[in-house]
Structures are given as structure tokens and as C-alpha cells.
Design a binder for these strands. Sequence first.
DNA 1: ATTGACCCTGTAGTGGCTACAGGGTCTAGG
DNA 2: CCTAGACCCTGTAGCCACTACAGGGTCAAT
Lengths: 137, 137
Amino acid sequence: MASSRTIGALSREAGVGIETIRYYERIGLLPPPRRAESGYRHYNDDDIGRLRFVKRGRELGFSIDEIRTLLQLAAQPEQPCAEADRLVREHLAEVEQRIADLSRLHAELAGLACCSERRASDCRIIEALAGAPLPHA
Amino acid sequence: MASSRTIGALSREAGVGIETIRYYERIGLLPPPRRAESGYRHYNDDDIGRLRFVKRGRELGFSIDEIRTLLQLAAQPEQPCAEADRLVREHLAEVEQRIADLSRLHAELAGLACCSERRASDCRIIEALAGAPLPHA
DNA sequence: ATTGACCCTGTAGTGGCTACAGGGTCTAGG
DNA sequence: CCTAGACCCTGTAGCCACTACAGGGTCAAT
Ligand SMILES: [Zn+2]
Ligand SMILES: [Zn+2]
Ligand SMILES: [Zn+2]
Ligand SMILES: [Zn+2]
């Protein structure tokens, strides 16, 4: 017995918003589901699987396009998975880059804190933004 | 002699794109500059200062709204700078949160790597996305 | 029959730019 | 004086990945 569910039920089962599901369909990430006579969408078990796949991909920070590729790879079970591996490595490098950027930012911001006793004209934060040279201590 | 420059010159001096400068003006982050009879914008030295302030703020990851607030604070030199300090702390917390999120992501992705010798049907990456339980090693 | 939960389409908004299209202006060289 | 090319103008649309309506139709229980 293949179970069938409306978009609301799918939304609850997969933990993805209704609007988001319709958006994924619109951009071709999910296939158009069967429709009842009323026009209501009806989803089967494969559809949950696919949507959960997308959700996990997003949680891992993959872009929609990267997920599109991963879905294609998953649909060709006999092909070697080298490309999936490459994609993960590439994405890992992106994440590392973002962490490095944010860490640099963090250090700069941490160096600015704690001057709330001054007037704005002497504030280190304002000075740093306005371009006054900071003492290089 | 107050020097005056067109938008192209300002763009080069501040290191901010022309389209971006016009965008900042449109959203009220920069004041509308003097105009020549031709309609060309002309900027003075204060305008460079303000634009550089904005640029540094963006480089530090502040949102446009945060920069708006910082600009207002900088314009009131007699006020105490407690609010600027609070804003920086708050922003620092945001950055820390983002780093934490990305680090979690990084760990998960790193745990997936290196299976390019297999077929897609056995690929750990595909399995992990499809929801197959990973051995908890 | 009515209520209220659910569903539909289509459009517009978010942030922070960026990229045109389709024009006008300015300046240096010939 | 004329023209080429660099520069400038406005207005609009696109990017990403959603999210939030407005204005309607459908379904199940009472
Ligand atoms: Zn990626
Ligand atoms: Zn201060
Ligand atoms: Zn912030
Ligand atoms: Zn693999």
C-alpha cells in the first residue's frame, strides 16, 4: 500500500515548509507530484525521500545547484562516486574559507571592544571605522 | 581648496564600486551630493570619509542597518559611546555564532570525505544524504 | 449548511549588491 | 569643428534561497 499525503503532511513529515516545497518544485529540484481532481498535490514515499535528501544537503550547507548534482549522482547507482567526493571536498574548502574569513573578522572586532566610558569623539570603535590609525599594540 | 570629484574618482579613491555608491545613496546611507548642471554628482572630502567609514563597517561584517546606527553615533561626538560598544559586542556574538555553526558543518563534512573508489549506490556521501544510518564510529 | 483547516496560483519582498539598456556629457586628438 | 571614446545619468531587473501575503477554491466534521 503506497501511502499518499498532501503537501501539509509532507511538510510535517520532512520538516520542510510548505512554501519551500512548492519553491523546490518550481525550480525543478522536486518533480511535479500527482494531482487530485481538486488540484491538490499528492506525494508518495519516494517524494519524502527526495525531499529529505534535499533538506540534509541544505543543512550541510550545499547550494541548490550542488544538491541538484548530488541528486543526479544518486540516481545513477552504477557510476563511480568520484564526482560526489570532489563536490564534498570543494564544499569543505568553501566552508574552511568562510571560517577563516570570520575568524579574521572576529579578531578584528574583539580588538575594538570595551570603550563604553568614553565620548563618541574618542571612541575606539568610531575611530577605527573613521580610519584613524590605531596604536599598533 | 575643497577638492571635488565625480563618482568615478570617488569610486577609485574609496575602493567602492560606482553602482554600490549610487545604491548607498538610494537607500539613504550616503547623502545626495552636489550636482553639476549636467546632472553629474560631485563629492567633497567629507563624502570620501563617510564612504570609507561604510566600507570598513562592511568589511567588519556589519549590516547596513548597523552601519546606519554607527554613523549616527559618530555624528554625535559628545554622547557617550556605550551604544557603539553594545553594537560591537552584539555583532561579535553573531560572528561567534556563525563560526560555531560552520565548525559543526565542517566536522560533519569532514566525516564524509574519501570514498571515490565506490559506486554511487555504496557511496557514503549519498548514503548520508539519503538518510542511511552511518556506523557511529 | 456552515465553519475552519487546508490547499491553489501568482506576485512581491528580503539583503546587498550587480548588471544591464538606453540615453546624455565631456574631453582630447585630428 | 568634429568625432571617438570615456564617463555619467535614470530606471529596471537579476542574483540566492526562501518567505509572506492576497484572493481565491476544497474538504471534513458538526
Ligand atoms: Zn558549496
Ligand atoms: Zn567607545
Ligand atoms: Zn551584526
Ligand atoms: Zn563515494
